[in-house]
Design a protein around this nucleic acid. Sequence first.
DNA 1: CTCACTCTTGCATAGGTTTGCAAGATTACC
DNA 2: GGTAATCTTGCAAACCTATGCAAGAGTGAG
Lengths: 335, 335
Amino acid sequence: MKGKVTSFDVAQRAGVSQSAVSRVFSGASASKATQDKVRSAADALGYRPNRLARGLITGRSKIIGLVVAYLDNQFYPDALERLSNVLKEQGYHILIFTTKGRGEEVKQTFDQLMDYQVDGIIAASVGISDELTNRCAAAGIPLVLFNRGQRGGALAQVTSDNLQGAAKIASFLVKGGHRRIGHISGWMGSITGQDRAQGFASGLQAAGSELVHQIDGMYRRDTAAEAAETLVSEHGCDAIFVGNDHMAFAVMDHLRGAMKISVPNDVSIVGYDDVSMAAWGAYELTTLRQPVNRMVHATVDTLLAMIEDADASADQITIDGPLVVRTSAKVPKEN
Amino acid sequence: MKGKVTSFDVAQRAGVSQSAVSRVFSGASASKATQDKVRSAADALGYRPNRLARGLITGRSKIIGLVVAYLDNQFYPDALERLSNVLKEQGYHILIFTTKGRGEEVKQTFDQLMDYQVDGIIAASVGISDELTNRCAAAGIPLVLFNRGQRGGALAQVTSDNLQGAAKIASFLVKGGHRRIGHISGWMGSITGQDRAQGFASGLQAAGSELVHQIDGMYRRDTAAEAAETLVSEHGCDAIFVGNDHMAFAVMDHLRGAMKISVPNDVSIVGYDDVSMAAWGAYELTTLRQPVNRMVHATVDTLLAMIEDADASADQITIDGPLVVRTSAKVPKEN
DNA sequence: CTCACTCTTGCATAGGTTTGCAAGATTACC
DNA sequence: GGTAATCTTGCAAACCTATGCAAGAGTGAG
């Protein structure tokens, strides 16, 4: 009862060849009779096919590598859980890698991913160098970027419509009667950060206003809080669009706590993501919802398509999301 | 450049046998000369050993299965990230499974884990039936429970000292001058929930007080919020110990928001976990810290010990944590 | 009953690595 | 320089499954 039970063992017990049991479990053709014999023998012995061995010969490990940078931003655990569930339905499972680094560490991570012969990779908000994308392409491993774009790349990616979304926020804030509007951006080294900043600036212009000042929040709470203080104290901002909810919470904490400033009476705050915490009573954050479910499904769909068909086109999908109005920002009087 | 490059390819290029290249990559003995030849050939070809094949023959996949129930409770993403990092240092990686269910779903999850030939399993706060533990034992797969105990089991587990911790909280609240103290427990189907409840009750007695009322919060925000309302409105509680931070936030939101009750002036709230959010300005939650780092290291250490040595003893480790005093509960005047 | 045709099934090989074994190469020592 | 001891190295088997191939079993028609 110690050693693993193999397809050979159940073949022996069922009085058939090893190929027969393989065929039964891989869904190939087999007569009803052998099906039954094999199944009952397998049940008796507690046999289950060894995925490693199967992967070795089929060239499909049924493992998807997920590399994620910011697990403290609730958006990502949430996405992770949904990705896991959707992939599970398709018979895939997630090998997870976390990495803060941007350069060498990411490269090592990819090395390790490829060691495990993953069938595909999802990179959630992590920077991928051209060298890495080439390596993946050379190895024939599909890669899709989740919630992170790549300029002019032919890379598959799914993001929300950051320009459009940020523009919606701009329009909302202007209509809300704010005069001095600032922006704490996501890390400007990321396309996501850039796009939201750009969409916001042009949105303000389109609404006849302009951006007073912008500071890079680096996706970090402390940096964002500091930035908020600067925007309010030095630039007299009465509204701030913060590049994601995670930073927006820090901003609200800092304004209300250390600075004794009322949100939204003195300063309006708008975030981006609509993580579940945004609905919590302590924040009631007005924010642009990223439709996680649709993003996850789109990601899995394109990734699996690329796995099935090696030269499927690398889709670049952007998904539109609604502005969720709560109480952290003044609401325009009329529509 | 299409097909994978194998150890055989690099052997050919280096002018040695395939075994030679295997030996240099698996760290077995090899002369300096062949080491060099093999390494440079491998670099030129971009060779890396196939972990699936390696796992097939060594019987070690270097994969650890992690199954986790509550990813929306920040404690777990945090633990996940740390587990991932610590395991990575030891050459292991995490195949992740999320499951809400308690019965059949957990079983299927374990089936799938075993299909992947994981070297060990970490179950974070999920209920494991005896049947499953037996299956693991039969398959020779070590299992350790993280942040979740098991009554009278011989199972490896690492938890914080829930009885002691809850008792500390009891003492703190009594010293704080509270008269009517209630408890919103974690799910009473979990040992964790039971232990904290019990530790709290006996802690109150030891301090010359008693528990006014207790309600099962089920680890859910909505249930906890409802419970808080009952405790305050119907039982006149002036202090509540909430079974974990995740629920405590909901309680604070509900008291302050819907019920217009001041925390801590009217009601003191204490949580358990000390997730990073507990330090945020919106909550400043007084809570008992679970030392995640030490718990994670203990978990990995015991798990790896069990993997190395099949009949290593299944340690049951409980780790003590400090009470972190913030502002969500009245602080005793003197010491 | 025979023939042609389709289903099933077993044999044997492949997939990429590790490892015991034995032979060859090297070292050490006298 | 000779012998014993130690290193290196290649050969081949093993890990567990999937699958092409060919032979056998079954089916239907004439």
